[in-house]
């Protein structure tokens, strides 16, 4: 009887040991997989701010109708413009300029002739429509009034 009980206890021990071993294996494996996916998780002190930063990392984030990382207006054709136009030069160069369909086309032709811009195929129409719609010429007259004056008391 006692031998039977002893054997039963031994089986139980081995069973528990195997269970522990298996759990450790699963946990370790899980941790390894998690570390591969997110290698930052061990840097505990940095964790709390991640939520804030997540917003910053999205290169396609749109805020108030503006594509944040380029400053472009969010409208039809935006991604085509980003893909084709911001490789060689900054979006700032586009944002400074205002032209109609014809002149945006001329500008593209000039870039193809002198700046190694390849043929844009069907994308050209999408790009030019986006630019001429969102960045058309504004009439400034022969001389604009002074605007954005930063008033200050002159001391001397």
């Amino acid at each position: 009887m006692s031998e039977e009980l002893d054997f039963h206890n031994q089986v139980k021990k081995i069973y528990r040991f195997l269970l522990l071993l298996f759990s450790l294996f699963v946990i370790t494996g899980g941790l390894i997989v998690y570390y591969m996916v997110n290698p930052n998780f061990l840097n505990l002190k940095k964790a709390p701010e991640v939520a804030v930063a997540v917003e910053e990392l999205d290169p396609d984030r749109i805020e108030n109708g503006i594509h944040v990382s380029t400053g472009f207006v969010d409208a039809e054709g935006l991604m085509t413009v980003i893909r084709n136009c911001t490789g060689c030069h900054s979006s700032k160069l586009i944002l400074q300029n205002r032209m109609n369909v014809e002149r945006w086309n001329t500008t593209i032709k000039w870039m193809q002739e002198t700046q190694n811009l390849p043929d844009l195929g069907k994308n050209q129409e999408i790009i030019v429509n986006y630019l001429a719609t969102n960045y058309p010429p504004i009439d400034k007259g022969r001389r604009d009034i002074l605007t954005n004056i930063d008033w200050y008391e002159l001391k001397d």
Partner: peptide, 11 residues
């Protein structure tokens, strides 16, 4: 930047 119609380039 003051030309009208606007001219192409850095403003």
């Amino acid at each position: 930047s003051e030309f009208n119609p606007p001219a192409k380039g850095n403003q």
